Simulated assay, not measured.
Amino acid sequence: MTHLKLAKLTLYVALCAILSSCSHYPLSNQPATNIIEMPFAVGNKFLPRPIITPPEQILSLSSEHKKALRDYFNQKENRSMLPNKRLAQYLEDYVENYFYFNQTLTANQSLAKSQGNCLSLAILTTAFANHLGIDIGYQLVDSTPVYQEENGIVLSSEHVRSLLYAPKQELQNGISFFSRSAIAIDYFPERNLRVKRQVNKNEFLAMFYRNRAAESLIQKNNILAYWQLRKALELKPNDQHAINMFALVHEYHGLKVHAEALFKYGIERTDDKLNILKNYEIFLQREERFKDAAKITRQLSSYKTKNPFDWIKRGNNSLAQGRHYEAKRYFKRALKLAPYVHQAYFGIAKSETYMGNHKAARRALKKAKENAFELKNKELYQNKLIALKRES
């Protein structure tokens, strides 16, 4: 199998915020399940009902973009290459002018803006492959999750790589080879990644709606997130990530009975319970049901956390209680897991400031500024640096 490292993409790995994937399996015309069995609130609690991007629009291409792709594909100098290699080359040329943008876009939107996040690029690859009739497959691979926080919501990524398959080879009597070469279009071009499983087309589309729902949650648009998650769960039932967000949407919308029922539903029916348990613990603490929350805390103690924001939370709690050196240790634990998380550097800066170590605090603030992606955070850290310099 050939691995193609796409130019520009590896620079933005830490910024691919939400879950993404694709697949070559056919899309069913029927919903994957009757989600009426799930304990969510009826739609009249989330009105007015917004317009949701239909599945067929996600992967559609404009006539202009189809023509540009065909023109490249049929150029004389490219005809000697296998179709999957030609498309891989086209993608490599295209992404040289493609910029990271933390929003999930359809194929046409991504082309129009020359930007998008990791899932947007996977969608674009799929749209190109579908138009050219190239078989495409996707694998969920085992890699270190990337974490970030926006508006109090911690986002984590999964890594999916796409496979562009060479044409089928037929023998006599119509017998085909089942084993074919493929080019891996990989956002993490590491060798020897362990493949966890295949991802089918319905799950791919569900991830688009799940990404959009996460973006809506960050913007505090509970109504839009509700309908996007309804669509995601129609396509992939018992998706732990979607159920987790669905419970949060209900909680934020004031439907606490439904929220708790969804937390319990997800805990009972999904294999990966960690995030659902964490959010259920927080839910119970907000409701001041501390005995119930303590039971969930005991369950969580058996999990080994890989989320740096768990340590950042502990660090902030220690800061609030005046335990500054302990807080610094927690922030350093976060950086061991994710050295790109600017909030951990900021926590160290606050710890050092409280302990009177202004020089160390300035170093930490500079690192926080270097690792911050959004302008508002960079400006915050710059202002803190100026203020600290005045105090020194």
Rank of each mutant, 00 (worst) to 15 (best):
176 S>M: 11
158 E>Q: 08
190 E>I: 07
163 L>C: 12
181 S>L: 11
166 A>E: 15
172 Q>D: 13
162 S>N: 12
191 R>W: 05
195 V>Q: 02
191 R>D: 06
177 F>W: 13
200 N>W: 07
158 E>L: 12
198 Q>W: 03
197 R>T: 11
186 D>P: 00
201 K>R: 11
157 S>E: 02
166 A>I: 06
203 E>P: 03
164 L>M: 04
158 E>R: 01
202 N>F: 04
181 S>F: 06
158 E>W: 07
196 K>T: 04
161 R>M: 00
163 L>E: 15
207 M>G: 15
196 K>P: 04
181 S>H: 12
189 P>S: 04
168 K>G: 08
194 R>Y: 13
161 R>P: 00
158 E>Y: 06
188 F>L: 14
188 F>I: 14
170 E>G: 09
160 V>I: 00
164 L>S: 04
172 Q>H: 10
202 N>L: 08
182 A>N: 13
183 I>F: 10
183 I>H: 02
159 H>R: 06
196 K>C: 06
208 F>C: 05
187 Y>K: 01
192 N>Y: 10
177 F>D: 01
198 Q>A: 08
198 Q>D: 13
173 N>R: 12
172 Q>E: 14
171 L>A: 03
193 L>K: 13
169 Q>T: 15
171 L>F: 09
203 E>H: 10
206 A>C: 02
188 F>R: 13
195 V>K: 14
177 F>T: 09
207 M>V: 11
181 S>Q: 13
175 I>T: 09
160 V>M: 06
196 K>S: 07
170 E>K: 12
201 K>M: 04
166 A>D: 13
178 F>G: 10
200 N>Q: 07
168 K>N: 01
182 A>Q: 15
185 I>M: 08
157 S>P: 02
193 L>M: 15
166 A>P: 02
180 R>V: 05
206 A>S: 15
193 L>V: 10
205 L>I: 14
166 A>W: 07
194 R>Q: 15
192 N>M: 02
195 V>C: 03
176 S>Y: 10
207 M>F: 15
174 G>R: 00
204 F>N: 08
160 V>G: 07
202 N>S: 13
173 N>F: 11
174 G>E: 01
160 V>D: 03
189 P>D: 11
208 F>M: 01
203 E>V: 02
178 F>Q: 14
195 V>I: 15
163 L>G: 06
194 R>T: 15
175 I>F: 11
165 Y>A: 13
183 I>L: 09
191 R>P: 02
199 V>K: 04
158 E>N: 14
197 R>Y: 04
171 L>M: 10
158 E>T: 10
202 N>M: 06
163 L>I: 06
163 L>K: 07
179 S>G: 05
205 L>M: 07
171 L>I: 02
180 R>P: 10
168 K>H: 09
